[in-house]
Design a binder for these strands. Structure first.
Lengths: 203, 203
DNA sequence: GTCTATAATATGATAGAC
DNA sequence: GTCTATCATATTATAGAC
């Protein structure tokens, strides 16, 4: 009994290692720029062994993306219609910024995909993402109608949050080249908090 | 005399066609994702003929990037110390947004490079770009010291302008997937103008 | 499950005719 | 200057031993 190894254990361990290695390589080089060799080496496996777990490079990439998209929308979903409007928005900004700090590779994986025209996730953009954004834009507009936040274009407001927060992950190398030693994540939260307070608080 | 073709003419024409085709292909697929075949086809040349003008794929990419970087900083350079602070900043935002609208491929070429760690232009970031940003950040701070605009982190202010404007070029496919038929460049200028007025006008 | 060896293809670059 | 044909290499994927 003790001698019979549970194959599921090894499989789970290897699959996790592969996905982590693939995230590292795909986010740094894009789909075409990444090679199966690099991913296998980063995962500590031989190339054929890696392809034993995932049948193709494409399959690894798909698995990664589908895992990412599954949680990518959670921060926006968490924006609560019952909460205090300005605080809900500021909390969303904070969450997105924390994701850029803690999961920059995921952000860059996504960015690589979008910049190149979203060939693999256009469906996600036009279905799940659009539906959620439409819902939350309507919520933002209702808050504006009630005079609880200043009136701005709700879709551009959401785009602004994405771009301002994801910039610190996607353009990390540029930000750090300019800030030299300073950690952008030390000072960005206060900047963004102030920005959205000023934008959304009626004068 | 009339029979002797000026080779410079043809060369200039073909070189221009190659760079335009390369911009199209590199910006859409990244350096590794682009193939010499694709570029040659887009330029209307055979692959060997293309390589007659540029010795390698790398050389084409370098020529493109160096041409881009040469003008990439112009809008920021144009921010005039002698001008009215808020208007100078708003004009910079407008210029950057117009560049995203009129030259999205250039923006995506740059974005592809940065997202993947800027392997080819790290030197530019830490020298030319950093020097200019340092200079303009000092200018912004002097305006804040004089009380002519609200006090915010000057570097994050510049990052915010980059991210908010370039987002409409780099993430164009996502923006349009969500806005459906609406043209983002119709409504973005007013949104950004309002945003920076509220941020920088003292309460 | 994991490996070595290798097949099959894609791609960057060159040779050489015209 | 431009082309067809081709080389050399990189890369995805598979075969088959262990």
């Amino acid at each position: 009994m003790t001698k019979t190894r549970r194959p599921t254990r090894i499989q789970a361990r290897n699959r996790a290692a592969i996905l982590d290695a693939a995230l590292e390589v795909f986010s740094a080089h894009g789909f075409r720029g990444a090679t199966v060799d690099q991913i296998a080496a980063a995962a500590g496996l031989s190339k054929p062994n890696l392809l034993y777990y995932y049948p193709s490079k494409e399959a690894i990439h798909e698995a990664l993306l589908s895992r990412l998209l599954d949680t990518w929308l959670d921060p926006l979903r968490a924006m609560d219609p019952a909460g205090e409007p300005l605080e809900e928005i500021l909390a969303y900004v904070r969450r997105k910024l924390e994701m850029s700090r803690d999961y920059p590779r995921e952000s860059r994986l996504f960015a690589n995909e979008i910049v190149q025209g979203a060939p693999r996730i256009l469906g996600f953009l036009t279905s799940d993402l659009k539906a959620l954004v439409d819902e939350k834009a309507a919520l933002l507009e209702s808050w504006m109608d009630e005079g609880r936040i200043a009136r701005v274009h709700p879709y551009h407001l959401i785009f602004s949050i994405w771009s301002l927060t994801q910039h610190y992950a996607d353009f990390d190398v540029q930000v750090r080249a300019i800030l030299d030693g300073d950690d952008p994540f030390e000072t960005a939260p206060a900047f963004l908090d102030n920005l959205y307070r000023r934008l959304l608080t009626s004068a």
